[in-house]
Amino acid sequence: MTGSTPKPKTYLGVPVSRPRVAFFELSSCEGCQLQIVNNEATLLEFLSLVHVVNFREAMTEKSDDYEIAFVEGSVTRRDEIELLRRIRDQAKVLVAFGSCACFGGVNQLKNRFDPGWVKREVYGDAPVETDRAQPVEDFVSADLRIYGCPVRKEEVERVVTDIVIGKEIHYPKYPVCMECKANENICLFDLGEPCMGPITRAGCDAWCPNNRAGCWGCRGPADAANLSEMKKLMKERGFSDEILLDRLECFGGFGKHVDEYRKGQR
């Protein structure tokens, strides 16, 4: 998929009442899954909506009979590819859950280096298996993405509700700045701080700027992200190339922009 909405037929197979839901994790901090348990106020309501059949972090019972699979984390080892293919075969709806799954997340920062050096730096000469950190969709198709590091629980609940009732899923196409302005925050640039809000996809309700912290782009690019405008803005406000690049490459969502940027720097 391309970040747009899945065709309605993808939920036709899903019974409208209490679909069987499974959670899986690849290489991750398990934070996105935890966001579900961490939502005490509405957790019970959420649980009444779905039937959780697999959630290793919370339960011992497991079942391979599920309709919706939430896959968290990025792929960094061969066995994870096999697990992912098995999940794809079973699930009617596969959700790439969080920025690790959607873009590789912070894990993909290791792809900047020679893999041999990466292993030696941490494990010395001991053998350890690891590959590049890659998003889920490098291996299987995903029907839906839920962006964010971490995902925003309100959005997860909305998406799940929409799947259950068979509604189309919409992602905001506009940038974080729109939400930030609606919240009447003081702009970080006016406080002398860098912010990726102008080019990052909204949907988090400007989580970081609401707390007077600059956005680092965890949700990836907005539909019409304009990198050259962003570069200009950062330069005008006195921020170095390094500061922009650190934010562009942090979560993997701006991968192609980083390549562009590096080319431009040469």
Binding site: L34, E80, L109, K110, F113, W117, E121, V122, C149, C250
Partner: peptide, 29 residues
């Protein structure tokens, strides 16, 4: 699976460290 935080932080500016290292763990971020 290891994620190699100790390697991929190399080269990054100091302000990246707390922001990225919190992602070592969702429970005790």
């Amino acid at each position: 699976t290891p994620r190699f935080f100790e390697a991929f932080l190399v080269g990054k500016k100091w302000d990246n460290a707390p922001w990225i290292c919190g992602r070592i763990c969702g429970i005790c971020s």
